[in-house]
Design a protein around this nucleic acid. Structure first.
Lengths: 112, 112
DNA sequence: TTCGACAAGTAGCGTAGCTACGCATGAAGG
DNA sequence: CCTTCATGCGTAGCTACGCTACTTGTCGAA
Protein backbone atom coordinates (compact mmCIF):
# COMPACT_ATOMS: atom_id res chain seq x y z
CA UNK A 1 0.00 0.00 0.00
CA UNK A 2 1.54 3.26 -1.09
CA UNK A 3 1.85 5.54 1.88
CA UNK A 4 0.63 8.85 0.56
CA UNK A 5 -2.49 7.29 -0.90
CA UNK A 6 -4.12 7.67 2.50
CA UNK A 7 -4.04 11.46 2.27
CA UNK A 8 -7.42 12.84 3.09
CA UNK A 9 -8.95 9.50 3.97
CA UNK A 10 -7.33 8.83 7.32
CA UNK A 11 -9.88 10.77 9.34
CA UNK A 12 -12.64 8.70 7.80
CA UNK A 13 -10.86 5.47 8.70
CA UNK A 14 -10.36 6.57 12.28
CA UNK A 15 -13.98 7.54 12.66
CA UNK A 16 -14.99 4.22 11.14
CA UNK A 17 -13.03 2.11 13.60
CA UNK A 18 -14.34 4.16 16.50
CA UNK A 19 -17.86 3.62 15.24
CA UNK A 20 -17.84 0.12 16.70
CA UNK A 21 -16.89 1.34 20.13
CA UNK A 22 -14.39 3.40 22.07
CA UNK A 23 -10.74 2.45 21.74
CA UNK A 24 -7.43 3.86 22.90
CA UNK A 25 -4.79 4.95 20.43
CA UNK A 26 -2.70 1.84 20.40
CA UNK A 27 -5.76 -0.33 20.01
CA UNK A 28 -6.89 1.80 17.07
CA UNK A 29 -3.63 1.06 15.30
CA UNK A 30 -4.13 -2.64 15.89
CA UNK A 31 -7.74 -2.50 14.77
CA UNK A 32 -6.71 -0.83 11.51
CA UNK A 33 -4.05 -3.44 10.93
CA UNK A 34 -6.38 -6.32 11.74
CA UNK A 35 -9.35 -5.16 9.69
CA UNK A 36 -7.15 -4.46 6.68
CA UNK A 37 -5.25 -7.76 6.81
CA UNK A 38 -2.06 -5.91 7.58
CA UNK A 39 -2.33 -3.48 4.69
CA UNK A 40 -2.67 -0.55 7.03
CA UNK A 41 0.18 -0.49 9.51
CA UNK A 42 0.24 3.10 10.61
CA UNK A 43 2.91 4.58 12.84
CA UNK A 44 2.01 6.39 16.05
CA UNK A 45 3.30 9.63 14.55
CA UNK A 46 0.43 9.39 12.12
CA UNK A 47 -2.32 8.27 14.47
CA UNK A 48 -1.85 10.45 17.53
CA UNK A 49 -1.75 13.79 15.74
CA UNK A 50 -4.74 12.71 13.68
CA UNK A 51 -6.72 11.85 16.81
CA UNK A 52 -5.90 15.22 18.35
CA UNK A 53 -7.07 16.87 15.15
CA UNK A 54 -10.34 14.98 15.36
CA UNK A 55 -10.69 15.92 19.01
CA UNK A 56 -10.08 19.60 18.27
CA UNK A 57 -12.75 19.31 15.60
CA UNK A 58 -15.12 17.83 18.17
CA UNK A 59 -15.54 14.55 16.32
CA UNK A 60 -14.11 12.42 19.11
CA UNK A 61 -13.83 12.84 22.88
CA UNK A 62 -11.08 11.33 25.01
CA UNK A 63 -10.93 10.14 28.58
CA UNK A 64 -7.90 9.03 30.52
CA UNK A 65 -7.81 5.82 32.44
CA UNK A 66 -5.12 3.74 34.09
CA UNK A 67 -5.04 0.08 33.21
CA UNK A 68 -2.54 -2.03 35.15
CA UNK A 69 -0.25 0.91 35.75
CA UNK A 70 -0.45 2.16 32.18
CA UNK A 71 -2.03 5.40 31.17
CA UNK A 72 -4.54 5.06 28.42
CA UNK A 73 -6.37 7.73 26.50
CA UNK A 74 -9.59 6.25 25.22
CA UNK A 75 -11.37 7.91 22.33
CA UNK A 76 -15.02 7.71 21.53
CA UNK A 77 -17.14 9.08 18.73
CA UNK A 78 -19.30 12.12 19.42
CA UNK A 79 -22.56 12.90 17.66
CA UNK A 80 -20.67 15.37 15.53
CA UNK A 81 -18.23 12.59 14.72
CA UNK A 82 -21.02 10.29 13.69
CA UNK A 83 -22.35 12.95 11.34
CA UNK A 84 -18.86 13.56 10.02
CA UNK A 85 -18.45 9.87 9.37
CA UNK A 86 -21.64 9.81 7.32
CA UNK A 87 -20.28 12.70 5.27
CA UNK A 88 -16.93 10.97 4.86
CA UNK A 89 -18.72 7.86 3.65
CA UNK A 90 -20.58 9.88 1.03
CA UNK A 91 -17.35 11.57 0.01
CA UNK A 92 -15.61 8.23 -0.27
CA UNK A 93 -18.36 6.87 -2.47
CA UNK A 94 -18.07 9.84 -4.80
CA UNK A 95 -14.30 9.68 -4.84
CA UNK A 96 -14.39 5.97 -5.54
CA UNK A 97 -16.78 6.39 -8.43
CA UNK A 98 -14.89 9.31 -9.92
CA UNK A 99 -11.44 7.76 -9.81
CA UNK A 100 -12.85 4.37 -10.70
CA UNK A 101 -14.11 5.81 -13.94
CA UNK A 102 -10.48 6.16 -14.95
CA UNK A 103 -8.80 3.27 -13.20
CA UNK A 104 -11.33 0.49 -12.93
CA UNK A 105 -11.21 -2.00 -15.77
CA UNK A 106 -14.17 -2.24 -18.08
CA UNK A 107 -14.76 1.47 -18.16
CA UNK A 108 -14.11 2.28 -21.80
CA UNK A 109 -13.82 6.04 -22.34
CA UNK A 110 -15.39 5.73 -25.76
CA UNK A 111 -17.77 2.80 -25.65
CA UNK A 112 -18.05 0.92 -28.93
CA UNK B 1 -14.92 16.46 -4.33
CA UNK B 2 -12.58 17.20 -1.49
CA UNK B 3 -9.34 18.51 -2.85
CA UNK B 4 -6.73 16.63 -0.89
CA UNK B 5 -8.38 13.29 -1.59
CA UNK B 6 -6.49 13.13 -4.87
CA UNK B 7 -3.15 12.85 -3.11
CA UNK B 8 -1.17 10.03 -4.60
CA UNK B 9 -3.72 9.19 -7.26
CA UNK B 10 -3.18 12.05 -9.67
CA UNK B 11 -0.37 10.37 -11.57
CA UNK B 12 -2.58 7.36 -12.18
CA UNK B 13 -5.37 9.57 -13.53
CA UNK B 14 -3.02 11.37 -15.89
CA UNK B 15 -1.62 8.12 -17.20
CA UNK B 16 -5.15 6.81 -17.65
CA UNK B 17 -6.32 9.73 -19.78
CA UNK B 18 -3.18 9.53 -21.89
CA UNK B 19 -3.81 5.84 -22.41
CA UNK B 20 -6.45 6.68 -25.01
CA UNK B 21 -4.09 8.82 -27.01
CA UNK B 22 -1.69 11.73 -26.84
CA UNK B 23 -3.07 15.02 -25.54
CA UNK B 24 -1.68 18.42 -24.65
CA UNK B 25 -1.92 19.79 -21.12
CA UNK B 26 -4.99 21.90 -21.54
CA UNK B 27 -6.81 19.07 -23.26
CA UNK B 28 -5.89 16.74 -20.41
CA UNK B 29 -7.58 19.08 -17.96
CA UNK B 30 -10.68 19.09 -20.12
CA UNK B 31 -10.64 15.33 -20.54
CA UNK B 32 -10.48 14.88 -16.77
CA UNK B 33 -13.36 17.28 -16.29
CA UNK B 34 -15.44 15.64 -19.00
CA UNK B 35 -14.88 12.03 -18.00
CA UNK B 36 -15.63 12.83 -14.35
CA UNK B 37 -18.79 14.83 -15.04
CA UNK B 38 -17.13 17.94 -13.71
CA UNK B 39 -16.00 16.40 -10.46
CA UNK B 40 -12.37 16.82 -11.37
CA UNK B 41 -11.65 20.40 -12.31
CA UNK B 42 -7.93 20.64 -11.77
CA UNK B 43 -5.97 23.88 -12.05
CA UNK B 44 -2.97 24.19 -14.34
CA UNK B 45 -0.73 24.56 -11.31
CA UNK B 46 -1.62 21.02 -10.48
CA UNK B 47 -1.43 19.48 -13.94
CA UNK B 48 1.69 20.96 -15.45
CA UNK B 49 4.07 20.14 -12.60
CA UNK B 50 2.57 16.66 -12.44
CA UNK B 51 3.21 16.14 -16.16
CA UNK B 52 6.80 17.26 -15.78
CA UNK B 53 7.18 14.83 -12.92
CA UNK B 54 5.87 12.04 -15.12
CA UNK B 55 8.18 13.08 -17.92
CA UNK B 56 11.20 13.12 -15.61
CA UNK B 57 10.17 9.64 -14.52
CA UNK B 58 10.05 8.57 -18.15
CA UNK B 59 6.38 7.65 -18.09
CA UNK B 60 5.38 10.21 -20.70
CA UNK B 61 7.18 11.93 -23.57
CA UNK B 62 6.34 15.38 -24.87
CA UNK B 63 6.63 17.02 -28.26
CA UNK B 64 6.06 20.66 -29.16
CA UNK B 65 3.84 21.72 -31.96
CA UNK B 66 2.29 24.98 -33.10
CA UNK B 67 -1.42 24.88 -33.84
CA UNK B 68 -2.90 28.06 -35.31
CA UNK B 69 -0.25 30.21 -33.74
CA UNK B 70 -0.50 28.56 -30.34
CA UNK B 71 2.26 26.53 -28.78
CA UNK B 72 1.23 23.12 -27.67
CA UNK B 73 3.14 20.55 -25.72
CA UNK B 74 1.64 17.19 -26.48
CA UNK B 75 2.21 14.30 -24.12
CA UNK B 76 2.09 10.65 -24.93
CA UNK B 77 2.48 7.52 -22.89
CA UNK B 78 5.75 5.60 -23.08
CA UNK B 79 6.11 1.88 -22.58
CA UNK B 80 7.33 2.61 -19.09
CA UNK B 81 4.23 4.70 -18.58
CA UNK B 82 2.02 1.89 -19.69
CA UNK B 83 3.65 -0.43 -17.21
CA UNK B 84 3.34 2.21 -14.51
CA UNK B 85 -0.33 2.57 -15.29
CA UNK B 86 -0.85 -1.16 -14.85
CA UNK B 87 0.85 -0.90 -11.47
CA UNK B 88 -1.25 2.11 -10.52
CA UNK B 89 -4.37 0.20 -11.44
CA UNK B 90 -3.35 -2.68 -9.20
CA UNK B 91 -2.54 -0.25 -6.42
CA UNK B 92 -5.87 1.47 -6.83
CA UNK B 93 -7.70 -1.84 -6.61
CA UNK B 94 -5.92 -2.70 -3.39
CA UNK B 95 -6.47 0.75 -1.95
CA UNK B 96 -10.13 0.64 -2.88
CA UNK B 97 -10.63 -2.73 -1.23
CA UNK B 98 -8.73 -1.79 1.89
CA UNK B 99 -10.44 1.52 2.53
CA UNK B 100 -13.75 0.11 1.39
CA UNK B 101 -13.56 -2.44 4.15
CA UNK B 102 -14.00 0.46 6.55
CA UNK B 103 -16.13 2.87 4.60
CA UNK B 104 -18.33 0.86 2.30
CA UNK B 105 -21.73 0.01 3.72
CA UNK B 106 -22.55 -3.60 4.41
CA UNK B 107 -19.09 -4.42 5.69
CA UNK B 108 -19.81 -5.34 9.28
CA UNK B 109 -16.58 -5.53 11.30
CA UNK B 110 -17.95 -8.37 13.37
CA UNK B 111 -20.33 -10.34 11.15
CA UNK B 112 -23.25 -11.85 13.01
C1' DT C 1 -10.30 47.50 -28.13
C1' DT C 2 -11.48 44.90 -24.69
C1' DC C 3 -12.67 40.63 -22.96
C1' DG C 4 -12.80 35.77 -22.71
C1' DA C 5 -11.28 31.09 -24.28
C1' DC C 6 -7.14 28.81 -25.29
C1' DA C 7 -2.31 27.40 -23.87
C1' DA C 8 1.80 27.17 -21.11
C1' DG C 9 4.22 27.93 -17.07
C1' DT C 10 6.28 29.18 -12.08
C1' DA C 11 6.71 30.66 -7.04
C1' DG C 12 5.25 30.01 -2.81
C1' DC C 13 1.90 28.01 0.53
C1' DG C 14 -0.49 24.68 3.36
C1' DT C 15 -1.94 20.21 4.59
C1' DA C 16 -0.99 16.13 6.41
C1' DG C 17 1.21 11.75 6.76
C1' DC C 18 5.94 9.85 7.84
C1' DT C 19 10.57 9.27 10.14
C1' DA C 20 12.87 9.20 14.07
C1' DC C 21 12.98 10.17 18.30
C1' DG C 22 12.03 10.19 23.75
C1' DC C 23 9.65 8.58 27.96
C1' DA C 24 7.43 5.09 30.92
C1' DT C 25 5.56 0.38 32.67
C1' DG C 26 5.18 -4.59 32.87
C1' DA C 27 6.16 -9.28 31.44
C1' DA C 28 9.36 -12.69 29.78
C1' DG C 29 13.76 -14.91 29.29
C1' DG C 30 18.51 -15.46 29.79
C1' DC D 1 19.25 -9.42 37.99
C1' DC D 2 19.07 -7.36 33.83
C1' DT D 3 17.94 -6.99 29.26
C1' DT D 4 14.61 -7.09 25.82
C1' DC D 5 10.19 -6.66 23.93
C1' DA D 6 5.29 -5.42 23.79
C1' DT D 7 2.40 -1.90 25.41
C1' DG D 8 1.28 3.00 25.47
C1' DC D 9 1.70 8.09 24.86
C1' DG D 10 3.69 11.79 22.64
C1' DT D 11 6.45 15.52 19.66
C1' DA D 12 9.81 17.79 16.20
C1' DG D 13 11.04 18.12 11.82
C1' DC D 14 10.79 16.43 6.99
C1' DT D 15 8.81 15.84 2.77
C1' DA D 16 5.49 15.16 -0.86
C1' DC D 17 2.32 17.17 -3.46
C1' DG D 18 -1.72 19.50 -4.78
C1' DC D 19 -3.43 24.38 -4.63
C1' DT D 20 -3.51 29.56 -5.02
C1' DA D 21 -2.18 33.23 -7.47
C1' DC D 22 0.28 34.94 -10.73
C1' DT D 23 2.64 35.88 -15.60
C1' DT D 24 3.04 35.54 -20.66
C1' DG D 25 1.02 35.14 -25.16
C1' DT D 26 -2.37 34.30 -29.37
C1' DC D 27 -6.85 34.51 -31.34
C1' DG D 28 -11.76 35.41 -32.02
C1' DA D 29 -15.84 37.85 -30.76
C1' DA D 30 -18.45 41.69 -28.89
Amino acid sequence: MKAQALHGHLDALLLAVLEQGALHGYAIIEALRARSDGNLDLPTGTIYPALRRLERAGHVASTWSTVSGRERRTYQLTDSGRRALAGERAGWREFQLTVGRFLDPGNPPTPA
